[in-house]
Amino acid sequence: GATAVSEWTEYKTADGKTLYYNNRTLESTWEKPQELK
């Protein structure tokens, strides 16, 4: 079967924080998503 690919993209901001963006739900979060833990 196909492996579930994470929908989350990780961005590094200018101040060194990490922003997570979900390509499916168009949601963005500063918290690390469950799927990435």
Rank of each mutant, 00 (worst) to 15 (best):
N23K: 11
W30D: 09
Y21R: 08
A4P: 12
K17T: 08
Y20H: 00
A14V: 11
T13M: 15
P33W: 02
Y11P: 00
A4R: 08
R24V: 15
S28I: 15
Y21D: 02
N22A: 01
L36P: 05
L19E: 04
S6T: 10
T18P: 03
Y11L: 12
T29K: 05
L19G: 06
K32S: 04
W8R: 00
K17V: 05
S6L: 09
T13E: 03
S28A: 10
K37N: 13
D15E: 08
W30A: 09
D15R: 03
A4D: 12
E35I: 07
E10R: 04
V5M: 13
Q34W: 11
T25D: 02
K17L: 07
Y21K: 04
Y21I: 15
L26A: 12
T29L: 05
Y21F: 15
K12G: 03
L19V: 11
Q34T: 13
G1F: 15
L36T: 06
T25P: 00
E35M: 07
T3H: 12
V5Y: 15
Y20S: 00
N23I: 11
A4H: 14
E10G: 03
L19Q: 04
V5I: 15
E31P: 02
N22E: 01
E35N: 09
T18K: 04
A14D: 08
R24H: 10
A14Y: 05
T3N: 12
Q34N: 14
K12L: 11
T18D: 02
V5C: 15
Y21Q: 04
T3K: 07
E10H: 04
T13D: 08
E35P: 05
N22Y: 02
W8M: 00
E10K: 04
T9Q: 09
T25N: 02
E31Q: 08
T13Q: 10
E10F: 08
D15H: 05
W30R: 05
N23Y: 08
W8G: 00
E35T: 07
Y20D: 01
L26G: 15
A2H: 12
A14K: 11
T3M: 12
R24A: 09
L36D: 06
G16K: 02
A14S: 11
T29N: 03
S6W: 09
Y11M: 10
E35F: 08
E10N: 02
Y21L: 08
L36M: 10
K17H: 07
G1R: 09
K37P: 08
E10I: 15
S6F: 08
R24W: 10
P33H: 02
K17W: 05
R24D: 04
Y21P: 00
R24T: 09
K17M: 06
L36W: 08
S6M: 09
V5E: 11
E27M: 07
T9N: 04
A2I: 13
N23V: 12
Y20A: 00
T25M: 01
E31W: 04
E10S: 09
L19W: 15
E35L: 06
L26D: 09
E31S: 06
T29Y: 07
Y21G: 01
R24N: 09
S6P: 11
N22I: 00
W30N: 08
T13R: 04
Q34V: 13
T18L: 08
T18E: 02
T3A: 14
E35Q: 08
L36G: 05
E31Y: 06
E7K: 03
T25H: 01
W8Y: 03
D15A: 05
L26V: 02
E31N: 07
S28T: 15
T29D: 02
L19D: 01
W8H: 00
D15P: 01
Y21A: 02
E10A: 11
Y11F: 14
E27F: 04
T13P: 00
L26H: 15
Y11K: 07
A4W: 12
K32C: 15
Y20P: 00
N22K: 01
